[in-house]
């Protein structure tokens, strides 16, 4: 699971009001090289919840992103884009769990696929 996916997912348990961001429990992190595409990154930047991405990348062991959302003028800097690219697309949670911030319910992540299926009493 890339942090791109983490940045969109919210806890989907019925009745939960603050389901974002999901906390990350790490068992295994992998890094996969992904082709660098500045246009895709520029398109994605305004859609990203920055703090959630910065915190998530730190929990995966990468601490190069600034804590606060940077000015969009930084998108002209290749150095910044490369860090953004690495955090968003190359860091991947292979094994672990996503944890609902409100209820503590764990959603397992196996072979990189988060399982967001709910139990009957959570729908």
């Amino acid at each position: 699971m890339r942090l791109l996916t983490h940045n969109m997912l919210s806890s989907n348990i019925k009745g939960v009001t603050n389901g974002f961001p999901l906390r990350i429990e790490v068992e295994k992190v992998i890094e996969k090289q992904v082709d660098f595409n500045p246009d895709f990154l520029k398109n994605m930047f305004p859609k990203i919840e920055w703090k959630a991405l910065a915190d998530a990348s730190r929990s995966l062991g990468y601490s190069e992103l600034p804590d606060e959302a940077p000015e969009s003028s930084l998108l002209e800097s290749e150095e910044f884009l490369k860090k953004f690219h690495h955090a968003l697309l190359e860091l991947q949670l292979e094994e672990g769990a996503l944890v609902c911030p409100e209820t503590g319910r764990k959603f397992p992540v196996n072979k990189g696929i988060p399982n967001m299926l709910l139990h009957e009493d959570e729908v």
Binding site: T5, M8, G19, M116
Partner: peptide, 21 residues
Amino acid sequence: LDINFIQCDIRNLEWRGQTVD
């Protein structure tokens, strides 16, 4: 190909707003 898979019932999908194009 690198694809981001999620196992979920679409009806219970909960995303933070309009995140995809």
